[in-house]
Nucleic acid binder design. Structure first.
Length: 467
RNA sequence: GGGCUCGUAGUGUAGCGGCCUAACACGCCUCCCUGUCACGGAGGAGAUCGCCGGUUCAAAUCCGGUCGGGCCCGCCA
C-alpha cells in the first residue's frame, strides 16, 4: 500500500491507509492507547484497543517517543466530544490494524514533542541538532526559509533572471573582511579564498551578457561571530544590466512584496518609503530604524520596509587616509562622478548605494556599479593605492571593463536576516539548519580539526606556534 | 585582542559557607486506568554540583586557574 501523509489521510474518512512517521506522543489508558504519529505534514492520532488484536496491542504498548513506525488502519471520524480543535487532523483518527516498528529510538536527550517545554542549552541542541530539528519551531523556521527562497526564485525566474552559480574556491581580496582560505595542493604555498560575496563574479556575468542574474549564494567571512551573524550566511544575490538605482530598487521592492505577502505577511507602506542617508541620520539618528509604532510592533506579521540611499562613498580610515563605507565597486551618484575622477571633495562624494531595511534591521544592500575602468581606478586612487597596487587588486576588473561592460547594478539580500524578521527570532542559528558555536565548532560533526601529517605534507604546510 | 555571564540527575531550574543525607518541574522505569490529545493516579530509579588547586573546623556555595556554552566591544567593504 502507498504511504499517505497525516494531512492527506485526514481527507480519507472510511478508507484504509498506510501512515509512516515518528511516535510524537503516547497516551496509555490501560485498555486504550493513543499514539500521536508525526510526519512532514503534521500529526495524526492513532488508536489501539485492548479488546482487539492482542498481539497488536502488545506491540503498541512497547512504543516509546521517537520510535519510527509504519501503521495501517482505517480513518474514522471522531465523536463530537472527542474532536481536538487544536489539531488540523483533529476531526479524525486512525484506528490501527497493523503496526510495524521500523526503528526504535533511545530516549531523546531533551524535549522534542512539547512545544512549550523550556528550550535545552545551545551545546546540547547543537550536539543533537538532528533531534532539535524535529521540534516544531525548527521545522517551521526552516520550512518558512525554504518557502521564502522559493518565492524569490519564482519572482526572479518570472522576470527573466538566470540562476548562475559562481565559484566557491576563488581569489583572496585584501580589502573587506578577513578571508577564509583553502590551501592549494597543486600550487603548494598558495591559497584559495572562499567568497565573501559573489560581487566580482556577478559583475563579470553582466559583462558576459546575461543581463539579469541571480544566485542563492553563500558568503563566507572569517570575522568573530555574533548572535545575528556567523562565518557563513546565504544571500539572494541579484545583478542587472542597463539599470539605474530606481530600476533595481523597484524590482527588488516588487520581489519582496510578492514574497512576503504570499507568505501571509503585511507590508506597512507601499511603495517603500525612501530616505537619504542625511535624512535618516537627522530623523532617526541612525541608518537603520524601525518605522512601526509601538502597537504595530506587537503584530508579528507586519513588516515595515524602507530604503536608505545617498550614502557617503568614503570615510576616514584609521591611518588617516580614505576608505569606502560600503562597496568599492560602486558608482558615485552621477553629479559626483567628476569630483571622484578629479579626487576632489572626497568627503562629500555620495555613492549609489541603497540599503533596504525592515523593522529596524538591514534586509539587503546594493548599488549601481562602476562599469568604466577610470571610475573604479579613481576609487582606489582615493584610497591611496598606486597604479601597480590597483592593477594587482582589480586589474582583471579594469581589463574586463574595457570590453563593452554594460552599466549595471544589483543587490544582496541576507536570507537569514530576512528570516529573522519573518520569524521574530533573535538568533541566526534559529534559522539555520546546522549552525556553529561562537568559537566556530560545527554542529554534530567535529570541525575544525587538525590535519594528519600526511595531509599536511601533501599540502606543503607546516604548523608553527602562534606567539 | 578585550569585557561580562553561565556550567548542579537525561532536560530546564532552585539552592550561593553549616539547617544539603542537594530541592522542584519535565523526562525515564514499574504498576493502575476504554476517550485522551502537554492524559491522569500511585510508587521508584537517577547528581561524587564541569575540571584542577586554594581558603576554612566545614565548600555546590568563597578565591585562583582551566575547559566548555552564551552575550557584547573591537572586527564584520
Amino acid at each position: 500500500m502507498k504511504r499517505v501523509t497525516a494531512i492527506e489521510a485526514a481527507q480519507a474518512v472510511g478508507q484504509t491507509v498506510l501512515l509512516q512517521g515518528w511516535v510524537h506522543a503516547r497516551r496509555d489508558h490501560g485498555k486504550l492507547i493513543f499514539i500521536d504519529l508525526r510526519d512532514l505534514s503534521g500529526i495524526m492520532q492513532v488508536v489501539f484497543w485492548g479488546k482487539g488484536d492482542e498481539q497488536l496491542f502488545k506491540m503498541a504498548d512497547s512504543l516509546r517517543s521517537e520510535f519510527v513506525v509504519s501503521i495501517t488502519g482505517t480513518i474514522q471520524e471522531r465523536q463530537p466530544n472527542q474532536v481536538n480543535p487544536d489539531l488540523p487532523t483533529g476531526q479524525v483518527e486512525l484506528a490501527a490494524e497493523k503496526l510495524e516498528i521500523l526503528n526504535e529510538s533511545q530516549t531523546p536527550p531533551f524535549e522534542i514533542a512539547d512545544a512549550n517545554a523550556p528550550e535545552a542549552g545551545e551545546e546540547i541542541r547543537l550536539k543533537y541538532r538532528y533531534l532539535d530539528l524535529r521540534r516544531q519551531k525548527m521545522q517551521r523556521n526552516l520550512r518558512l526559509r525554504s518557502q521564502f527562497v522559493q518565492k524569490c526564485r519564482q519572482f526572479l525566474f518570472d522576470n527573466d533572471f538566470a540562476e548562475i552559480e559562481t565559484p566557491i574556491l576563488t581569489e583572496s581580496t585584501p580589502e573587506g573582511s578577513r578571508d577564509f582560505v583553502v590551501p592549494s595542493r597543486l600550487n603548494p604555498g598558495s591559497f584559495y579564498a572562499l567568497p565573501q560575496s559573489p560581487q566580482q563574479y556577478k559583475q563579470l556575468l553582466m559583462i558576459g551578457g546575461f543581463e539579469r542574474y541571480f544566485q542563492i549564494a553563500r558568503a563566507i567571512r572569517d570575522e568573530d561571530p555574533r548572535a545575528d551573524r556567523g562565518f557563513e550566511h546565504t544571500q539572494v544575490d541579484i545583478e542587472m544590466s542597463f539599470v539605474d538605482q530606481n530600476d533595481v530598487m523597484n524590482m527588488v521592492e516588487a520581489m519582496m512584496i510578492q514574497a512576503v505577502e504570499s507568505l501571509g505577511y503585511n507590508v506597512k507602506e507601499k511603495p517603500f518609503p525612501r530616505f537619504t542617508y542625511a535624512e535618516a541620520m537627522e530623523k532617526f539618528g541612525a541608518d537603520k530604524f524601525d518605522l512601526r509604532t509601538e502597537a504595530e510592533k506587537k503584530d508579528p506579521k507586519l513588516l515595515a520596509y524602507a530604503w536608505v540611499y545617498k550614502f557617503p562613498f568614503f570615510e576616514k580610515s584609521d591611518d588617516g587616509g580614505w576608505t569606502f563605507t560600503h562597496n568599492p565597486f560602486s558608482m558615485p551618484v552621477p553629479e559626483h562622478v567628476d569630483d571622484l575622477l578629479a579626487g576632489k571633495n572626497i568627503e562629500n562624494i555620495l555613492t549609489t548605494q541603497y540599503d533596504l531595511i525592515c523593522n529596524g534591521y538591514e534586509s539587503g544592500g546594493g548599488s549601481i556599479r562602476a562599469h568604466k575602468p577610470e571610475i573604479l581606478k579613481a576609487v582606489y586612487k582615493v584610497m591611496g593605492f598606486n597604479d601597480e597596487q590597483i592593477k594587482e587588486r582589480v586589474g582583471h576588473m579594469l581589463e574586463a571593463f574595457q570590453y563593452g561592460a554594460p552599466p549595471h547594478g544589483g543587490i544582496a539580500l541576507g536570507v537569514e536576516r530576512n528570516l529573522m524578521n519573518l520569524t521574530g527570532e533573535e538568533y541566526l542559528r534559529e534559522v539555520q539548519a546546522f549552525p556553529m558555536t561562537g568559537k566556530g565548532q560545527t554542529a554534530v560533526m567535529k570541525g575544525p580539526k587538525p590535519l594528519t601529517d600526511a595531509q599536511l605534507k601533501e599540502l606543503g604546510i607546516k604548523i608553527i606556534e602562534r606567539g
